[in-house]
């Protein structure tokens, strides 16, 4: 018995994981991980959870722009090495579309076709899109952000205002890492002004 592939993958993707953590993780199984009392195994549990949490938040908070018929592009700046895990997940959701995720420094490009997942890591998001322009049509996006803005505001109940819960569920770091506009706009104002 050993740790599942997925858990090892999550552990390796965490930027704080050290060689000794991976070495130890290869000697334990899932049950040992869950029931351990030793601090070094508990540390592994926390590292795995932290990476998993970031992937989950990215899947939810990243916004995709439709560029032309074939490209979906989104900004994300994850702390850990989870770029492909997120981009591949979107590629499986939107089959045959080129998913381009990234930021000012890195980008992850992924597509799911009859050949399965094909992906590549490149320099900045901007550069990756410029290069894709040579091969695929890229049009400007429609004004979907305005539709979202109105809808998002319609869901807020003033009488239930709860800024602590909002901050807990949508921490500043994830708003920054996904460049969410309306939530950022809201964060920069006092709740009473909303």
């Amino acid at each position: 018995m050993s740790l599942s592939e997925r858990k090892l993958e999550l552990l390796k993707a965490n930027e704080n994981t050290e060689r000794k953590d991976i070495h130890l993780a290869q000697k334990i199984d899932n049950e040992e991980l869950e029931t351990a009392k030793k601090d070094d195994i508990i540390r592994i549990r926390k590292l795995i959870r932290e990476t998993g949490r970031e992937i989950h938040k990215m899947k939810g908070f990243v916004r995709l722009k439709q560029l032309g018929e074939k490209i979906k592009c989104g900004y994300m700046k994850p702390k850990h090495e989870v770029g492909f895990m997120v981009a591949d997940w979107f590629a499986r959701r939107f089959l045959g579309d080129v998913i381009v995720m990234g930021n000012e420094e890195k980008s992850w490009i992924s597509v799911y076709t009859e050949e399965g997942i094909t992906h590549e890591k490149r320099e900045s998001l901007k550069r990756a899109l410029e290069k894709l322009k040579d091969h695929l049509e890229i049009e400007n996006e429609t004004n979907l952000e305005d539709v979202w803005k109105i809808y998002y505001k319609s869901q807020y109940s003033e009488e239930r205002k709860n800024k602590e819960l909002f901050r807990k569920n949508m921490p500043e770091k994830y708003i920054k890492r996904t460049k969410n506009k309306i939530e950022k706009e809201f964060k920069s104002r006092k709740l009473d002004e909303y």
């Binding site: 899947k59 939810g60 998002y152 869901q155 109940s157 807990k168 939530e183």
Partner: peptide
């Protein structure tokens, strides 16, 4: 998956 949260934390 949650895609956002409103100021009421929902």
């Amino acid at each position: 998956i949650c895609h956002s949260f409103t100021p009421d934390g929902r």
